[in-house]
Computed example of a mutant assay.
Amino acid sequence: MQRKIKLLWDFRGPDAKETAKHHTIHLKEFAAIEDLIYHEVDIQELNPMLCTAFITVDEADMKTYRDALKPHRGELS
């Protein structure tokens, strides 16, 4: 069974939620252009001034996403 990795980008400030939502559009576009598989793309609102956009991918594809998109951090999902 393949492990899943969640790659995350943090956005801060009064527009954090809208910026994170917009970032998810680009994550989906990248996956479509590169013909890559992902499990989930979404946001998490941690508080009104901090929101995270994320994409969950198979560990085998993680390096492709990581090298091209430069996430702020990653975690096992």
Rank of each mutant, 00 (worst) to 15 (best):
V41G: 01
T56C: 02
V41F: 13
I5M: 07
K70P: 02
D42P: 04
A32V: 06
D58S: 15
I25W: 02
E40M: 05
S77P: 00
Y65S: 05
K63R: 15
I43C: 01
P14S: 05
F11C: 02
H26V: 04
D35R: 13
Q2K: 07
D42N: 15
T64L: 13
E40D: 05
K63C: 05
C51G: 07
A53V: 08
I33F: 08
H72L: 03
P14R: 15
L36T: 02
T24M: 08
I25S: 01
D15V: 10
E40F: 06
P14V: 13
A31C: 03
G74E: 07
P71M: 07
A31L: 08
R66N: 10
K63E: 15
D35T: 09
H22D: 13
A60T: 14
A32E: 10
P48F: 06
K28V: 03
R73K: 09
H72V: 05
K17L: 07
F11E: 03
A31T: 02
R12W: 07
L50V: 10
D67S: 10
T19K: 15
A53L: 02
A16Q: 05
T19R: 14
L76K: 02
A60Y: 08
E29F: 05
A68Y: 08
D61F: 14
D42V: 02
Q2C: 06
C51A: 14
H23W: 14
G13W: 07
F54R: 06
M62W: 13
F30W: 07
R3Y: 07
A32W: 09
E75S: 00
L76V: 14
T24F: 11
I43G: 01
D35K: 14
R73E: 03
T19Y: 11
Q2F: 15
M62T: 14
P14W: 00
H23E: 07
H22W: 08
V41D: 02
F11W: 14
E18V: 03
I55W: 03
L69W: 09
P14G: 04
I33Y: 04
R12P: 01
A68K: 14
C51F: 07
F54H: 02
P48L: 08
D35H: 09
D58W: 09
T64N: 14
D10W: 01
K28G: 13
P71T: 06
A31R: 09
E59C: 03
A53E: 00
K17I: 11
L50G: 06
